[in-house]
């Protein structure tokens, strides 16, 4: 039996998946090189079997679940924004469509009178509320802050 034939089977024998036949065993016993190769292969196999499996950190599951919840929350935010943008776009399209329809039908003259009346009404309203403008600005800031806190709390709850 030749060494190159034997060396092809070394790993199988070392892994316990092949039992050496009588000629093979005789060669391994008598050939220093092949015997040493088998011993080295068995040593490598034993070392590989005795490797301790690295363990995940204690909070691994919690981290995975947190990442999952964050990914889900981000997905919901994208949907929310997309829905809001679609609503605004639809509103703009409807208003433009109405304006074009009124223009084509000649109602724009009537609508321009209505717009002028609306503008004068708003101007009158602005003059009346301008003394209280700081109060209304502060109320707007408070409302905006409340909305931001609510959004943040919703994000925290989702996570």
């Amino acid at each position: 039996m030749f060494c190159d034939e034997v060396l092809e089977t070394i790993e199988l024998i070392a892994a316990g998946e092949l039992t050496a036949s009588a000629p093979l065993a005789e060669h391994l016993a008598s050939c220093h090189g092949c015997g040493a190769a088998l011993a080295a292969a068995r040593r490598v196999d034993a070392l590989l079997r005795s490797r301790v499996a690295p363990a995940p950190p204690a909070n691994f599951s919690a981290r995975v679940m947190n990442r999952l919840r964050l990914a889900r929350w981000r997905g919901e935010q994208v949907l929310d924004w997309g829905f809001n943008i679609a609503l605004v776009t639809a509103g703009v399209v409807v208003v433009l469509g109405l304006w074009m329809a009124m223009r084509q039908s000649g109602l724009v003259i009537v609508s321009s009178d209505a717009v002028q009346m609306f503008e004068s009404g708003m101007t009158l309203l602005a003059r009346r509320i301008s003394p209280s403008l700081p109060l209304y600005s502060a109320a707007t800031v408070v409302l905006g802050t409340a909305l931001a806190i609510w959004w943040w709390a919703e994000r925290d709850a989702a996570l």
Binding site: R51, P54, A55, P56, F60, V64
Partner: peptide, 28 residues
């Protein structure tokens, strides 16, 4: 499956902090 996944990745990548990130990516 976390023990198996982490052990496989940690033995293949051999950078523990990166292995943690990748193991989390696997579950996602």
């Amino acid at each position: 499956y976390k023990d198996l996944v982490f052990a496989l990745i940690a033995r293949t990548i051999q950078d523990r902090s990166r292995a943690e990130d990748l193991a989390q990516d696997v579950f996602l």
